[in-house]
Write a protein that binds this DNA or RNA. Structure first.
Length: 585
DNA sequence: TAGCGATAGGTCTGTTTCCGA
DNA sequence: GTTCGGAAACAGACCTATCGC
């Protein structure tokens, strides 16, 4: 066995069979099943995200601008688009653990837990703690009790732009959005609270410390020079084992005296833009990338759905080269942080055109990529793969709070630290759409890319062409309408016209709506089903009254076009998982 | 006899490793 | 040598029938 790098403790049990991971802690699949026809697959989130980010959404930045909007959906929150506190959080859902197809996607049924006595769901009840952020209460805060609040959600225009923040002084607890207090209702395994843990994570700042009020993720950190300030973070000694590639870009070395607290830790939320500056992902990664294990060879760099690689650009700054940092983060909408089970992996070779170097910050591998003025401060991320660490290794790590099982979605997180004229540094961060890293999900789950029509009269009968991947001869298209409780109230299978179907196309006849007498447009959903638990993301579909004037129908069509990232005010009952908007063709 | 909880065994699902193109 | 797809092996979770109280 090869020597483990520092991000994996070598003292851990090497046994792959020793996983203590739990499945049922994430969900009771059976109990969710009845409720979550359209909630229970990862794909729905991924493709939804892809749809949002590839269809010219005005909300192109996952990091989003501060300030949520009323009625924002969980998807917005997932991508940092919504900064209000999450209105839907399962009491059995750890913010520190995975966002799986079955836990956060699925509103838990009101029924009791499984009779299975050993369910870790019982072990990991949200019984003891909750992270809350002082001053982070959003006007959109849900009236319902919420066991976990998103620190990202706490970022408001006020807190970010507050002169107090910028000035770095006089920031009371009500203004500082990142100060947290310990309350209740987070599983023990959701937070790193032990001193031991803090000790093994150099670079982590102590929140709630005396000088906390002077810290801000976007604060202008006092650093004494420009370019050198891009490397102020103390690198773990183990990081020395990584070789940097020859590059026209001169890698600066950290200046002595810089402390790990010079820049915000990796698990701190940062804004995507500030003033004139904006860190933007111009090309999002594909929604699937099979990560490789240490026992495997590399599986290559993360690719973009367009065929190239993700592209990141810094807007508003082009004075001199600056470092772009990249690490693998969680897909958790509430708390973006380094992923415990995935690390960025530096790709080298003839096909890699982008220079990079690896460093380790607080046990997390970080790839540093130069943003050069001559490249318009833009970089193609063709040098970054994803490494999967064995669940058993990570879960047994002292102080580790995450569970690896079904925790297979990540985001690529990018950061820059922009030197300011006053010698301080402005830190920005943006995160990609979620990327599914498991082999299985990518292989099995059907994926709807586009569909030909998104509305039809209640009589149905119109022909619809659905295009996508992982379609099977036995695939079904299910139309459904949900009640306010999220339960399907009406479900019917579309009649598939087999003779017109091809591998990546399904042609079907839209079924009639169950109530032909409706006088207003009705929003329903449909999804593709390859079998139990093998369902695509749900897509929105609108039934229009038969007597509706044509011009009104057109309005409906326009307002419910799936590619629109912001729901029409009239659209209701959208589940947390099925914001479904692939592009209508 | 019905209801409930505990348990065992089969099945299903996800993870990890290996192989070969 | 690297990248990649596929699949086997394995472990753990889920489901369900059965039993005892």
């Amino acid at each position: 066995m090869k020597e483990l790098p520092s991000y994996r403790e070598s003292s851990l049990s090497p046994s792959p069979a020793s996983s203590i991971s739990s499945r049922s802690w994430f969900s009771d699949a059976s109990s969710c099943e009845s409720l979550s026809h359209i909630y229970d697959d990862v794909e729905s989130e991924l493709n939804e995200a892809a749809a949002r980010f590839t269809l010219g959404s005005p909300l192109t930045s996952p990091g989003g601008s501060p300030g949520g909007c009323p009625g924002e959906e969980p998807w917005h929150q997932q991508y940092g688009l919504g900064h209000s506190l999450s209105p839907r959080q399962s009491p059995c859902h750890s913010p520190r653990s995975s966002i799986t197809d079955e836990n956060w996607l699925s509103p838990r049924p009101a029924s009791g837990p499984s009779s299975r006595p050993t369910s870790p769901c019982g072990k990991r009840r949200h019984s003891s703690a909750e992270v809350c952020y002082a001053g982070s209460l959003s006007p959109h805060h849900s009236p319902a009790p919420s066991p976990g609040h998103s620190p990202r959600g706490s970022i408001t225009e006020d807190t970010w732009l507050s002169p107090s923040v910028q000035g770095g002084s006089g920031l009371g607890p009500t203004l500082f959005p990142f100060q947290y207090c310990v309350e209740t209702d987070i599983p023990l395994k959701t937070r790193k609270t032990s001193e031991d843990q803090a000790a093994i994570l150099p670079g982590k700042l102590e929140l709630c410390s005396d000088d906390q009020g002077n810290l801000s993720p976007s604060r202008e950190t006092s650093i004494d020079d420009g370019l050198g300030s891009q490397y102020p973070l103390k690198k773990d000694s183990s990081g020395d084992q990584f070789l940097s590639v020859p590059s026209p870009f001169t890698w600066s070395k950290p200046k002595p005296g810089h402390t790990t607290s010079s820049l915000p830790p990796l698990d701190w939320p940062l804004p995507t833009h500030f003033g004139q500056f904006e860190l933007k992902i111009e090309v999002q990664p594909k929604t699937h990338h099979r990560a490789h294990y240490e026992t495997e060879g590399s599986r290559g760099a993360v690719k973009a759905s367009t065929g190239g690689h993700p592209v990141v650009k810094l807007l508003g700054y082009s004075e001199k080269p600056i470092n772009l940092q990249m690490f693998i983060g969680t897909a958790d909408d509430r708390y973006l942080r380094p992923h415990a089970f995935y690390q960025v992996h530096r790709i080298t070779g003839k096909t890699v055109a982008t220079a990079s170097q690896e460093i380790i910050i607080a046990s997390t591998k970080v790839l540093e990529i130069p943003l050069l003025p001559e490249n318009n401060m833009s970089a193609s991320i063709d040098c970054a793969g994803i490494l999967k660490l064995r669940n058993s290794d990570i879960e047994l790590r002292k102080g580790e709070t995450d569970i690896g099982r079904k925790n297979t979605r990540v985001r690529l997180v990018f950061r820059v630290h922009i030197p300011q004229p006053n010698g301080k540094v402005l830190s920005l961060q943006t995160a990609s759409i979620p990327v599914e890293c498991s082999q299985r999900s990518a292989q099995e789950l059907p994926h709807i890319e586009k569909y030909s029509i998104n509305s039809c009269p209640v009589n149905g009968g119109h022909e619809m062409i659905v295009t996508g991947s992982n379609f099977l001869p036995e695939s079904k298209i299910i139309f459904l309408e949900k009640g306010q409780d999220g339960r399907p109230q009406w479900e019917v299978e579309g009649k598939i016209i087999r003779e017109k179907c091809q591998g990546a196309h399904i042609v079907l006849e839209v079924p009639p709506y169950h109530n032909p007498a409706v006088t207003a447009a009705v929003q329903v959903h449909f999804y593709l089903c390859n079998g139990k638990r093998k369902k695509s993301q749900s897509q929105r579909f609108t039934y229009t009254p038969v007597l509706m004037k044509q011009e009104h129908r057109e309005e409906i069509d326009l307002s419910s076009v799936p590619s629109l990232p912001v729901p029409h005010p009239a659209q209701t009952q959208r589940s947390s998982s099925d914001p479904g908007h692939s592009s209508a063709v």
